[in-house]
């Protein structure tokens, strides 16, 4: 019976991965990526590798998620003011 669970779990993981890559809003992509990491941790438990599961949950979902949220926050924050601020400082002053 566990094989049904395994198939469902793998299908869910792939579905989340597809979802993450097909979002237009980066925030949704990153959130789905973090969820992906948590499902991967369940997969490691099913494959009886608790060491890998712990590392995945802490590093794969936690630290990587924080890094990505920070990165997209940076990209988004500067997105609007950039157009106005870019002219004086980024406009090839000595061209």
């Amino acid at each position: 019976m566990m094989i049904v669970f395994d198939i469902l779990l793998v299908a869910t993981i792939i579905w989340i991965a597809v979802g993450s890559l097909s979002q237009r809003q980066m925030f949704k992509s990153v959130v789905m990526f973090v969820i992906f990491g948590l499902f991967m941790a369940i997969a490691w438990i099913r494959l009886s590798s608790p060491d890998v599961a712990m590392a995945e949950a802490a590093i794969g979902a936690g630290v990587t998620g924080a890094l990505m949220l920070d990165a997209i926050g940076h990209l988004r924050r500067s997105e609007t003011p950039y157009a106005s601020a870019a002219e004086p400082e980024g406009g090839e002053p000595d061209a």
Binding site: S20, M26, S29, V30, F33, W44, L47, G60, M68
Partner: peptide
């Protein structure tokens, strides 16, 4: 580019699944 980084992570996870699967 962030999508590309996420995709590279998926490639890695895929290979990890293959490796641990084979370990079983």
């Amino acid at each position: 580019l962030v999508h590309k980084v996420i995709a590279a992570n998926f490639m890695g996870s895929g290979i990890f699944l293959v490796l641990i699967g084979l370990a079983n």
